[in-house]
Structure formats: structure tokens, C-alpha cells
Simulated assay, not measured.
Amino acid sequence: MADYMKPVALLLLLLNMCMYIILAVIGGWAVNIAVERGFIIGPDLRLPAHFHPIFFPIGNFATGFFVVFSLIAGVFGIASGIVGFTHLHFWNYHSLQPAATFSLLAWGLTVLAMGLACQEISFDRRNAKLGTMEAFTIVLTVTQFFYVLAIHSGSQGAVPVERRGNFA
């Protein structure tokens, strides 16, 4: 495998891992706020007219979906980082497959969360920590994509061990 891409992949992996951890921590904070400050409905009370299925007292109507998908993307990103460290340790064809799979899943979920972040930005009325979460999600979409490209370009010319050798 092309060893010149290994340092680039390591740098992107460390950056993404730190950012995904921060994304998951802020997402956990937002879920905690929603649980603590959510609606309390008594037996004889009705739901408010603008009740949202995923209600967050901070932010706007897109916040609930954005936080949930960002939290899921953060967990997949952390898993992608763990598998990515294993791939960087071995740096062979067999470790590439799980690393590529997890990184592509994490990138796809991050793109979904980025779309919701853009929707939330367009609505205004949001918390400063949610603004940080939106910025991290948008930056992670780009850096995770470059990480996927780095591990795939590092695998150019990689052939499984079973196919090497003399076929005569």
C-alpha cells in the first residue's frame, strides 16, 4: 500500500476523532437539556398546538432532528476512529475494508446531520453551543470526506495476499 498517505490519514483521523468526541459531548448535553426541561403533561391537559415530536426547549423546530442525527453521527465517527487506528497500525488490504466501511457510514451520517444543521441555521433562534455543534458538523463533513479519500488513495495497488504470487 502507498505509505506516503499514512501520515495524512493519521492527521485527519486524529482531527476527526477529536471533533466527533466534541460533537457527541455537545449532543449529549442537548439531549440532557431536552429531558430536564421538556414538556410535563398532566392527565387532564392537552398537548400544545405547536408540539414537536422531538421537542428541544433550546433552538428551533429543526433542533431535535439535528441533535439526534449529530449524536448518531458522532458515535459512528468515534467507532470509525477506533477502526481507523487499527487500520493505520496494520495498513494492509484486510484492515482497509472495515476502516473504509465505518468511515463511509460516518461520513454519510455526518452529511445528513450537516443538512439538518444548515436547516437549523436558516431558521435562526438557536443557542451558542448549538452554533458550535453546527460548525463542527459542517467542518466534519469536509474533513471526514478527505479522510475517506486518504485511506482509499493509500490503498492504490493493494492486492489481497491470496492473489499475489506465481500462478504457474
Rank of each mutant, 00 (worst) to 15 (best):
D3K: 15
K6N: 05
A9R: 13
L11G: 15
L11A: 15
L15Y: 14
M17I: 08
M19S: 06
Y20M: 06
I22T: 13
G28N: 13
G28Y: 09
A30Y: 02
N32M: 10
I33E: 01
I33P: 00
V35W: 09
R37L: 12
R37N: 15
G38N: 08
G42N: 12
G42I: 03
R46H: 08
P48M: 08
A49L: 15
F51R: 10
H52K: 11
H52V: 11
I54K: 09
F56I: 04
I58G: 04
F61E: 14
F61Q: 14
T63Y: 02
F66Q: 01
V67T: 13
S70R: 04
L71E: 10
G74E: 04
F76L: 12
G77C: 11
I78L: 11
G81F: 04
L88D: 00
L88Y: 02
H89F: 15
W91G: 02
W91V: 01
S95M: 10
L96S: 01
P98H: 07
P98V: 04
P98M: 06
A100Y: 11
A100L: 10
L105K: 01
A106H: 02
G108P: 00
T110Q: 07
L116P: 00
A117T: 09
A117S: 14
C118T: 00
C118M: 03
Q119Y: 03
E120K: 09
S122G: 02
S122I: 01
R126P: 03
N127L: 10
N127F: 09
G131A: 05
G131P: 00
T132A: 14
I138Q: 00
V139K: 03
L140M: 03
T141C: 11
V142N: 05
T143D: 11
F145S: 08
V148I: 13
A150N: 05
G154I: 04
G157I: 00
V159E: 05
V159D: 00
P160G: 03
V161F: 12
V161C: 02
N166A: 05
F167L: 06
F167Q: 08
F167W: 11
F167D: 05
